[in-house]
Each structure stands twice: as structure tokens, then as C-alpha cells.
Design a protein around this nucleic acid. Sequence first.
DNA 1: AGTTGATTCATACTTTTGGGTGAGGGATTG
DNA 2: CAATCCCTCACCCAAAAGTATGAATCAACT
Lengths: 132, 132
Amino acid sequence: MAVAILLLKMIEFQFYFQKLSAEVYIGIIGVLFTLVGIWAGQRIARKRKMQQGIQQGEFKLDEEALLRTGISKREIEVLEWMARGLSNQEIADTLFVSLNTVKTHTASLFLKLDAKRRTQAIQRAKDLRLIP
Amino acid sequence: MAVAILLLKMIEFQFYFQKLSAEVYIGIIGVLFTLVGIWAGQRIARKRKMQQGIQQGEFKLDEEALLRTGISKREIEVLEWMARGLSNQEIADTLFVSLNTVKTHTASLFLKLDAKRRTQAIQRAKDLRLIP
DNA sequence: AGTTGATTCATACTTTTGGGTGAGGGATTG
DNA sequence: CAATCCCTCACCCAAAAGTATGAATCAACT
């Protein structure tokens, strides 16, 4: 901006001493400031895009879908491990519960996600943005 | 742009008949064209982003990973249906082969993807960009 | 012509997963 | 305090998935 003003003064100088017409002078100013504006506009847009980019990269759980399906916290935990490829027994070990407990959770999940298999449940959950 | 020039003419009119100083006139022009520039710059940025967005959304198979793992075309097919949540029997029906054939393909996939379960295989395949 | 790899299928067996049901304890809420 | 929901666990049975091995066919490459 400072550079622009400086240039403006120089042009103004020429305006008085070299008798450039007012129209040319105005035109130069217009072009100059338009360019400055374009530059500023792109900077603003880029900054906005960066902020959006971070949000896109991160996963945000869809709370609305959670309530709609009625899936509990524990069930989401099981779902997450399931999606990572763990077996029921492995999930049971990581969550410190019995295999039967994990089975009940998965059965409940299949019901709430309208899935017949764990692979299907994972697919549905991703569509509903319950897991990344 | 046309509107801007029109405004300019109006201001020019006032310049001559209301004796505004040249500095104020120049300032108004500068601000006006800066705003026009910002508007144009953001439009350009938005258009660029849209084009990028389309490319991001599309899936591109990682050929290199395919060769590295040595997974065949048929196996990829099985993998894709598997990831969509189909059972082995359902995959067999859609590909018009027997259940046993699908089992051999899946077994081969687990070996090549270093997975113990289908859920794990799907996860690995997504990481390797073999499936979307 | 022989080798190799992909695809297909089979049989037999084990493990995992899923379905159904019941039930006890804990937290919350009307 | 009764009702409800969540979490926990158990048992049984059926279905699906996974493991191991062998084998036939076919296309491509040497």
C-alpha cells in the first residue's frame, strides 16, 4: 500500500509537470488500485481456504446422526475398533470386557445401523460420519 | 466495472463543481478500485478452488502399490465388493463364481495385504489407495 | 514345448461372527 | 420409587469366514 501511494505521488508529479491529461492519470490510478485489490482479495481467500482445509482434514463426529441412530458411547468405541480391523476378542481385550459384551454391543450396532455384517456396519457408519 | 466508471464520472462532476480537493478525489478512486480488485480477486480464487475440489473428490488407484503387493485384477474386484460390505456368498453371486473361489481370492488377499480379517484387509487397502 | 501365473473349484476342518434370550447392577429421570 | 437406559455377562445355536491342501483349465511368456 505504501508503495502504491509512493507511485501515486510520482505520477502526480508527472501530472503537473508533463501535462498528462486527467483521464490518463485517473486510469492509471484505477488500474493500480485494482491490481492491489486483486492481490489483497487473493490473500484473504487463501487464508480462508487454509482454515477450511484444516477442518476438512480433521474428522468431526455427526452428533445429529448419533442421536438419530441412538448409538451409545460404548457402542461407538466398539465401532471404532471394529473399523480398524480388530476381532471381537481383540476389542474385548482392549476395552477390558468379555467377548460376550462386545458381541452384544456389535449386535446392537447392527440393529441401529441397519447392517447384517460388520463390514456393512463400518461402511454405513462412515457414510453417517460416525467414524472417520 | 461499468458501475465503477459511472461512479467515477459522478465524483468527477462533484470535483469540478463542489471544489473537492484533488487528494480526496484520488483517495475515493483508490478505495473504490481497491474494493473492485478485492471482489475480482476473490472470484478468481473461488473458481480455482472449485476446480481443485473436483480433483480431490475423485479416487485414483495407486498402480505402484498394486504391483508391489502383487494383487491381481480379480482380487481387486473381490476386495471392492468386500469393502462395500458384501458377504462372500454375495460376492460369489455378483461375480458369477462359486463361494469357494471367492474364499481363495480372499485368502490370497489377506496374504498379500498382511491381514488376518476382512475388516483389516479393507483398512490396509484404503491406506494403500487400492480402494476409495 | 515347458513354465508360470491367474482363475476356477472342491473338500475338510477350525475359528469367528451373528442371532436370540435372559439377567443383574448402576445411573438417570419423571 | 418405579421406569428406563446403559453396560455388563452368560449360554446356545447357526451361519459366515478363514485355513490348508490339492487340482484342472487357460493365457502368456521363454
